[in-house]
Write a protein that binds this DNA or RNA. Structure first.
Length: 897
RNA sequence: GGGCGCUUAGCUCAGCCGGUUAGAGCGCAUGCCUCACAUGCAUGAGGUCACAGGUUCGAGUCCUGUAGCGCCCACCA
C-alpha cells in the first residue's frame, strides 16, 4: 500500500485519472448492448463558449445522472457536442477581422467562411476540453457539431419536409431587425428590456378648413413618422368623431394621411390617436393590411433613414429623432414630452435595440407542429421537473407564433432554396414543390429549373437560425435522417438537463421536431435546474464582473469540491447563489474522505482486501448500528437521485460518513481494535465494507477522489474501477433498531459527560471517574460491555454503572439523558454558583415543557383524534421530562445543602 | 396586464405525505496540535419560520389575503 499524504491534493490525480478512464473506454456506450439504454444529449455549448458556472452546474448534474445509471448497470450514453452559434460566432470572427483592419465584406463570403472554420478549428473545442476538467463522462467518440456533414444533412432534410408539407413559407412581415448584426431575429432572440424612454406628442395638421385644425398623436419613436401612411382612432371615441374620414397632413413631409377608426386603438393611451406606420410596427402592420394602406420602409439595414425628405436622408435613426424634435418644435407642432417606461426588444447577442421592420423572410408555421408537442406534455409522455415549468411551457405553446428562421448572416446552414430567374421574371413556376414563382426548395442545387428547364439558378443568400439545427439535436446526433443503429438503440433519449432560459428557444422546439421527424418524443424527462447567481442575486455574467470562474475553483479546491458545493447548494430547480468560500466545504469533505481512507488502510495493512461482511453473529451492537444507519443512507441516497434531489443525495451521504462513520464508528473501532484484538477481522471488514460502499454512493457527485481512494482500497493488482462498480443496494435485513437504540443511549451518555466537562471547565488532560445510573437492564449491560469505549470517548477514569442511585453525592455534576443519569464528581473543580444557575435553568426549562405536555395531553380532542403512536410518544416524553425534572430538582437541593 | 419563484439562525440555504424538543455549512465563543484529518476534534451561544386571517386535535408545512425582493411572458403606439 502506498503511503498517502495527510492531505488530498486534487491536482495530483484529476487529469491523469480522467485520461485513464477515457483510455479504458469507460465513457463509451455500445449500440449493440442488451443492457437497458440510458441516454442524455448535452445542451450543446456554443463553440465560442468559455466555461462558466452555469455550464459547471449543468454538466455536473448530467454527469451525476450518467455515472449513477451506469453504475446501476444501464447502457449509459452521454452525447457531447457544440453548437455553431451563428450570430455569436460570426460576431467573434468579425471582431478579429476588425483588429486586422478588414471586414467580412472585404473578404467576401467564401473567404470569410474559411476564416470562421479556421477559427472554429483553433478555438471551437476549448469548451469541450473544459468539460473534461469537470469530469464529464461523455462518449467523446460521438461528439457532434451542428455544422457537421450529418447534422447539416438533417437540417436540409427537415427544411424540405416542412416546406413540402406547407409548413415553411416566405413572406413580408414585421420582424425584429438588429441594425448592428444586420439580420432578422426571432421573437425569442429579441427579449424585451424595460427602458426609460419618452412619449412625444406631435400635432398633425388636418387638410381643409373645418375644425379642429389638427390632430395630436403620441409616439415613442418619432423617426418612424416619416413612414406614416395613416392616423387611427377608436370608433367609439367621441373626441374624434368629427375627424374620421378626413385627411391629416404629415408634418415635414406633406403626405396626406387618411384618418380611420379601428377598435385596435386604445382610447386611454396617449391622445387616443395613433400615427400608423405599417412598415415599422407590428400593430400598424395589421392595420395597414386591414385598411389597405401603403407600406413605406424608411430605414436601411443599418438603421439609417431612407425614402425620406432630403434633410433626413442618411441620418442614423436616433440622430433623425433629435433633428425631428427640433424641426417640429420650430414649426410649432411639438406637444408634450412625457417620461415613458416601456419594453423595448434588444438583440440577445449584441444588446442593440431592435427595429421592428417590414422584411421578406422565411417562416415556420408553428401551430400544427405545436399540437402533438402540447399533447405529449399533457399526457405525461414528457414531464418537466420541477412541475411548475409544465405551465410555462404549455402557455407558450398554446400562444405560439410563427418562427422567423432566415438570418442575413453568412455563418450557418444556407437555405436550401433556389430561385429560377426566368420563372421569376415570368411569374411562373407555381407547383407542388414551388409554391412561389421561380422558387425551388431542394437539398442539393438542381441542374435545371424543373418548370422551364432553365439553368439560371441562384441560391438564397440567407442562412438558417442557429436553433433550426439545435432543435434536431437529440435525433441528428444519433444519425437522423439516416436510420442508424445508434438512433434505434438510444432514441428517444431519457433525460434532458437544462436551464430555464432556453425552454422556448430549445426545449419546446426539440419536442416539436421530435414528433415531426421521428413521431416520438426526443426525451421523457426535462430537468430544469436553477440559474447560477452571485450572493446579491444577480446572474453571473462577464459584463457584470461578478464571475466566479469554475477553472479557478478547480485549481484552488479541486473538481470534486466544485461539484459537491454546486450540487449541495441548490434544492430542486432553485437558483444557486454562490460565493467562493463555499467551495471550502467541498474541499474539506474530500479531504475527510481521504483521511478516513488513510485510517482504514493503515489498520487494513496485511489483512487483505475484503468488502464482504462477516457472519452476522460475530458483529457487536456497534457494528450493527453503523450497518443499520448505512442501510438507511443507501435507501435515502438512491431515492433522492430518483427524484432529482441531487443535494439530498449528496448531503445524506455526507452526514452519514462524517458524523456517524468518522465521528463515532471510526473512533469506536480504535478502542475495539485495542481491546478486542481477536475481533480485528470483523471490525476491519465492517470498516472496509462501509467505506467502500459509501465511496460508491458518492462517486457520481465526487468522481475523482472516490475513484482514487477506491483504487487504494482495492489494493495492488486489482484492476477494477469504481466508475463501473455496481451501485449499492440496500439490504433491509441490516436494519437493526435495537442496536440503534443501544448506541444512541451510549452517544447520549458520552455527549452528556462531555458537556459537563466543558461547562464546568474540567481541565483537558484529567480523567475523572464517572458514575452512570442506568435503570434499563439491556442498556446497562451494553454500557458495561463498552466500558473502555466510554472511558475513551468521555475521557473518563473509572466508570461505575449502577441500576439505581443509592447515595446522594455532593459536589457532583449531573446530566440526565433519556436512558441514563450521568454523574461527574467535581471535587475541587466546581464553581457552585455557576452550577446552581445552570441547574435551575434546566429545571425551569423542563417545567415549561412539562406544562405544555400536560395541557396537550389533557386536551380530549387531541387524545381522541390524534393517531395513537403520536399520543404514546408524547406520554413517553412526559414521563421522561418528569423524571428529569425530579432528578435535577433533587440535585439542586443537594448542592444548596 | 398576466404568470411564476422566494421571504426559516449574523450570512447562504435544507426542511418530502401537516405530528415529539425546526436542521446544515460558513461565521461567532470556549477548550483541545488526542498517533486518519487543525481542510481537524469537542462543547456552546444564536430562530415570535415576512405579516394578517383561516382550516385542523395539531401549521414552518395546507388555504386566503397583504408587503418586500427576484424572474418570465404580453402589440398600449
Amino acid at each position: 500500500m502506498p503511503d498517502l499524504p495527510p492531505q488530498y491534493n486534487p491536482a495530483d490525480v484529476e487529469e491523469r485519472l480522467y485520461e485513464s478512464w477515457a483510455a479504458a473506454g469507460l465513457f463509451e456506450a455500445n449500440a449493440n448492448s442488451t443492457r437497458t439504454p440510458y441516454t442524455i444529449v448535452i445542451p450543446p455549448p456554443n463553440v465560442t463558449g468559455i466555461l462558466h458556472m452555469g455550464h459547471a452546474l449543468n454538466t455536473t448534474l448530467q454527469d451525476i445522472l450518467i455515472r449513477w445509471k451506469r453504475m446501476q448497470g444501464a447502457n449509459a450514453l452521454w452525447v457531447p457536442g457544440t453548437d455553431h452559434a451563428g450570430i455569436a460566432t460570426q460576431n467573434v470572427v468579425e471582431k478579429a477581422l476588425a483588429k486586422e483592419g478588414t471586414t467580412r465584406q472585404d473578404l467576401g463570403r467564401d473567404e470569410f467562411l474559411k476564416r470562421v472554420w479556421a477559427w472554429k478549428e483553433e478555438y471551437g473545442s476549448t469548451i469541450l476540453r473544459q468539460l473534461r476538467r469537470l469530469g464529464a463522462s461523455c462518449d467523446w467518440r460521438r461528439a457532434r457539431f451542428t455544422m457537421d456533414e450529418g447534422l447539416s444533412e438533417a437540417v436540409l432534410e427537415v427544411f424540405v419536409r416542412l416546406y413540402e408539407k406547407g409548413l415553411i413559407y416566405r413572406g413580408n412581415y414585421i420582424i425584429n431587425w438588429c441594425p448592428r448584426c444586420q439580420t432578422a431575429l426571432s421573437d425569442e432572440e429579441a427579449p424585451r428590456q424595460e427602458t426609460q424612454g419618452k412619449l412625444y406628442h406631435i400635432r398633425y395638421p388636418l387638410e381643409g378648413k373645418g375644425k379642429p385644425s389638427h390632430i395630436e398623436v403620441a409616439t415613442t419613436r418619432p423617426e418612424t413618422m416619416l413612414g406614416d401612411t395613416a392616423v387611427a382612432v377608436h370608433p367609439k371615441d367621441p373626441r374624434y368623431k368629427q375627424v374620421v374620414g378626413r385627411n391629416a397632413i404629415l408634418p415635414l413631409v406633406g403626405r396626406k394621411l387618411p384618418i380611420f377608426s379601428d377598435p385596435a386603438v386604445d382610447k386611454e393611451f396617449g391622445t387616443g390617436a395613433v400615427k400608423v406606420t405599417p412598415a415599422h410596427d407590428p400593430v400598424d402592420f395589421q392595420l395597414g393590411r386591414k385598411h389597405r394602406l401603403e407600406f413605406i420602409n424608411v430605414m436601411t439595414d443599418d438603421a439609417h433613414m431612407t425614402n425620406v425628405p432630403k434633410a433626413y436622408e442618411g441620418l442614423d435613426r436616433f440622430e433623425c429623432r433629435s433633428k425631428l424634435i427640433v424641426d417640429l418644435e420650430r414649426e410649432g407642432l411639438l406637444g408634450r414630452i412625457d417620461e415613458h417606461l416601456h419594453n423595448v426588444g434588444h438583440c440577445y447577442r449584441c444588446h442593440t435595440a431592435v427595429e421592428p421592420r417590414l422584411s421578406l423572410q422565411w417562416f415556420v408555421k408553428m401551430k400544427p407542429l405545436a399540437l402533438p408537442a402540447i399533447q405529449a406534455v399533457k399526457k405525461k409522455q414528457i414531464v418537466f421537473i420541477p412541475d411548475r415549468w409544465t405551465k410555462v411551457y404549455l402557455n407558450w405553446m398554446e400562444h405560439i407564433e410563427d418562427w422567423c428562421i432566415s438570418r442575413q448572416i453568412w455563418w450557418g446552414h444556407r437555405l436550401p432554396v433556389y430561385y429560377c430567374r426566368t420563372c421569376q421574371a415570368k411569374g411562373k413556376g407555381r407547383g407542388k414543390a414551388a409554391k412561389e414563382p421561380g422558387v425551388i426548395v431542394s437539398k442539393t442545387k438542381p441542374a435545371t429549373c424543373p418548370v422551364c428547364k432553365g439553368t439560371d439558378l441562384t441560391q438564397d443568400e440567407d442562412v438558417l437560425d442557429t436553433w433550426f439545427s439545435s432543435w434536431l439535436w437529440p435525433s441528428s446526433t444519433l444519425g437522423w435522417p439516416k436510420q442508424t443503429r445508434d438512433l434505434a438503440a438510444f432514441y428517444p433519449t431519457n433525460t434532458l438537463v437544462t436551464a430555464q432560459e432556453i425552454i422556448f428557444f430549445w426545449v419546446a422546439r426539440m419536442i416539436m421536431a421530435g414528433y415531426f421527424c421521428m413521431g416520438k418524443p426526443p426525451f421523457h424527462q426535462v430537468y430544469i435546474h436553477g440559474t447560477v447567481r452571485d450572493l446579491t442575486g444577480k446572474k453571473m455574467s462577464k459584463s457584470l464582473g461578478n464571475i466566479i470562474d469554475p477553472l479557478d475553483i478547480i485549481e484552488k479546491y479541486g473538481t470534486d469540491a466544485l461539484r459537491y458545493t454546486l450540487v449541495t447548494t441548490t434544492a430542486v430547480g432553485q437558483d444557486v447563489f454562490l460565493s467562493e468560500e463555499r467551495f471550502a466545504a467541498g474541499r474539506n469533505f474530500a479531504n475527510k474522505l481521504w483521511n478516513a481512507t488513510r485510517f482504514v488502510l493503515a489498520q487494513h495493512a496485511g489483512a487483505g482486501p475484503s468488502a464482504a461482511l462477516p457472519d452476522r453473529d460475530t458483529l457487536s451492537p456497534v457494528d450493527r448500528w453503523i450497518l443499520s444507519r448505512f442501510e438507511r443512507t443507501i435507501t435515502a441516497a438512491t431515492e433522492a437521485l430518483d427524484d432529482f434531489r441531487f443535494n439530498e443525495a449528496a448531503s445524506t451521504v455526507y452526514d452519514f460518513l462524517w458524523h456517524d462513520y468518522c465521528d463515532w464508528y471510526l473512533e469506536a473501532s480504535k478502542v475495539a481494535l485495542a481491546h478486542e484484538p481477536q475481533r480485528k477481522p470483523q471490525i476491519l471488514a465492517v470498516l472496509v465494507h462501509v467505506l467502500d460502499t459509501s465511496l460508491r454512493l458518492l462517486h457520481p457527485t465526487m468522481p475523482f477522489v472516490t475513484e482514487t481512494l477506491w483504487q487504494h482500497l482495492q489494493g495492488e493488482g486489482a484492476k477494477r474501477w469504481i466508475m463501473t462498480a455496481h451501485w449499492p443496494l440496500a439490504d433491509r435485513t441490516l436494519t437493526d433498531t435495537r442496536s440503534e437504540n443501544l448506541v444512541e443511549a451510549l452517544q447520549a451518555v458520552v455527549t452528556a459527560a462531555r458537556t459537563l466537562r466543558a461547562e464546568f471547565n474540567v481541565p483537558a488532560g484529567t480523567k475523572p471517574p464517572l458514575r452512570l445510573i442506568v435503570p434499563h437492564p439491556e442498556i446497562r449491560e451494553f454500557l458495561e460491555a463498552q466500558r473502555p469505549l466510554l472511558q475513551t470517548l468521555a475521557q473518563a477514569g473509572e466508570v461505575a454503572i449502577e441500576r439505581s442511585r443509592t447515595t446522594r453525592p455532593k459536589q457532583t455534576a449531573v446530566s440526565v439523558t433519556a436512558e441514563a443519569e450521568v454523574l461527574l464528581p467535581l471535587e475541587g473543580l466546581i464553581d457552585p454558583a455557576k452550577e446552581r444557575q445552570r441547574l435551575q435553568q434546566r429545571v425551569d426549562q423542563l417545567s415549561q415543557e412539562l406544562s405544555r405536555l400536560h395541557a396537550r395531553l389533557k386536551d380530549r380532542q387531541f387524545t381522541a383524534k390524534a393517531p395513537a403512536d403520536v399520543v404514546d410518544q408524547m406520554r413517553g416524553r412526559q414521563e421522561e421530562v418528569e423524571a428529569a425534572r425530579k432528578r435535577f430538582t433533587e440535585h439542586l437541593a443537594v448542592l444548596e445543602a
